[in-house]
């Protein structure tokens, strides 16, 4: 199982547009990815409602886990997404 941490860079936190972009990327990967605060219960990262209900704000650290053949590469891509301000585009 691959694990990564990321810091939410979007100024408005992980909801609305940033959450939508992130969840779309998870769906495109075809993998089961979980997201949560370190040491707390995780949610399905492919669920926009789950991700939004996490309520992760700007500057918060989250942990991603995934399983599968290219889990490492997928998580690297997802971390890069979270580490950029997705609302700025």
């Amino acid at each position: 199982m691959a694990t990564r941490t990321a810091t939410i860079a979007s100024s408005i936190g992980l909801h609305s547009r940033p959450a939508a972009i992130f969840v779309e990327a998870v769906e495109d990967s075809g993998l089961e990815v979980e997201i949560g605060r370190v040491g707390e219960p995780t949610v399905d990262a492919g669920s926009i409602l789950g991700v939004m209900a996490l309520g992760a704000r700007n500057g918060e650290v989250v942990e991603l886990t995934a399983e599968g053949p290219d889990a490492e590469a997928v998580l690297d891509r997802l971390v890069a997404l979270l580490n950029s301000d997705l609302d700025a585009e």
Binding site: S16, A19, A20, D44, S47
Partner: peptide, 11 residues
């Protein structure tokens, strides 16, 4: 974004 919620698998 609203359409995405309607497609949500957790829902």
């Amino acid at each position: 974004a609203t359409a995405m919620i309607a497609r949500d698998r957790a829902l």
